[in-house]
Design a protein around this nucleic acid. Sequence first.
DNA 1: CAACCCCACTTTGTATACAGTTCTCCATCA
DNA 2: TGATGGAGAACTGTATACAAAGTGGGGTTG
Lengths: 243, 243
Amino acid sequence: MNNAWHKEMLAEVKAGGRISDQDIVEKVRRAVLTQRLPPDTKLPEVTLGEVFGVSRSVVRKALTRLASEHVVDQRPNQVARVRAPSIEETRETFEARRLVEGEVAAQLAGRLDAEVMSTLETQARLETDAYERGDEPARIEHSLTIHHLLAEHSPNRVLGAMLTDLVLRTSIVIALYKRPSLASCYLENDHPRLLDRLGKGDGEAARACVNDHLHSLEALLDLRPRENSIDLMSILGRTAEQT
Amino acid sequence: MNNAWHKEMLAEVKAGGRISDQDIVEKVRRAVLTQRLPPDTKLPEVTLGEVFGVSRSVVRKALTRLASEHVVDQRPNQVARVRAPSIEETRETFEARRLVEGEVAAQLAGRLDAEVMSTLETQARLETDAYERGDEPARIEHSLTIHHLLAEHSPNRVLGAMLTDLVLRTSIVIALYKRPSLASCYLENDHPRLLDRLGKGDGEAARACVNDHLHSLEALLDLRPRENSIDLMSILGRTAEQT
DNA sequence: CAACCCCACTTTGTATACAGTTCTCCATCA
DNA sequence: TGATGGAGAACTGTATACAAAGTGGGGTTG
């Protein structure tokens, strides 16, 4: 576990009141998303308990939920670890998200009320602003907000919940497999264009737009098979630490 | 909780060895699926613990997992209950499953090896047999096996896992909303026809076939709005469910 | 008679103790 | 040098005790 992260959490915990399992889920999820907790990081129950000032019971519940969200890997008699999705799973996650988000967008086209539309447009503008001033964390935040709003307002709540899960999972693998040379995974006009099509009520155009967007995003990642260590490690040894 | 079910479980427990949380998940899931545990049935932790001969810790973990599978409703400080999906959610679940299973079938067409194909065909035949001799539980079993095999062999494991979840959820609502007049939700030629198209490698035909099958299934249900109690409850009662 | 309130009981939430498993590291040996 | 085995530490699995919240029934009051 990461020591800087510990201190940060402890500070927040002291500030706030009582901590519930849901709080832990959200904090860990966010830390994974922002790579403050990199893949394969061990998350022992007692340590987490000390960090958040609760006992193992609460931590265990949180870890179980994080496992069902695919954020954490929980195996019997072993310490929970931050999940590191494989390259293949990354591709599959993107494909699944194209299918689901495309359908959600198609259903949503022309059905969003003015208030939500304007919130979406605001977020898109804020994303551009953040990009231009080089504030990557803020940019990601706004981008995520857009997709979460779409999921949340999906007329089909079942699909919406599935989309929420897929947005989280793609965000994690984007952080994981982003080409180091790229400062940002920002695609200039994609979000405004999507919002435009949603506003005009053209479902199929919106679906196509989502598809292109996600294909472009995936293309920004480095999904070539790794030669150097992962394969050797996973074949020969057991606990592959990193790279 | 149901007393006949208690005895049944106790018998099984005594026969088998040690019980894990996963065992409880499977047994409860199956009991819900077969309506031995009808919707809204209370599932108190101590009672379940006594039934399975374990302490609350194990039961709690099982309940948390069942909640993430949408089988059980778990609210803070309240007894867990068997979930009763609304009519609207039922429609949405079917729609989601059409999207996902259609895609899985399309991808699977022409890619299934001979062994799996023959297992599928055997299950389809067994389903017909069971129907003809009026053995509904066996018929459901074989039908479920077919869909689970499709999910399991999906080239895209992410979609496959989503499909597994959706198959479970649709099965539950079918049991819930089946017209009482119908002895069975059996659609004579649907499964053989689907397998035929999968074998011939025609992806789009397979997708269409899945779509038709699921539309027909949904049409067998009684999804008319209920007058008597449900609506009043959700309008007057505490946590407004929707709209 | 109906509505309301209060108290006892039931049930869940959290912490903790102990048992069983896995991991780590060091000493031993070929 | 490299493999092996074992002791101890670290960690999870399970049970249980106590605290807090919710539920329901009986009695009181208007």
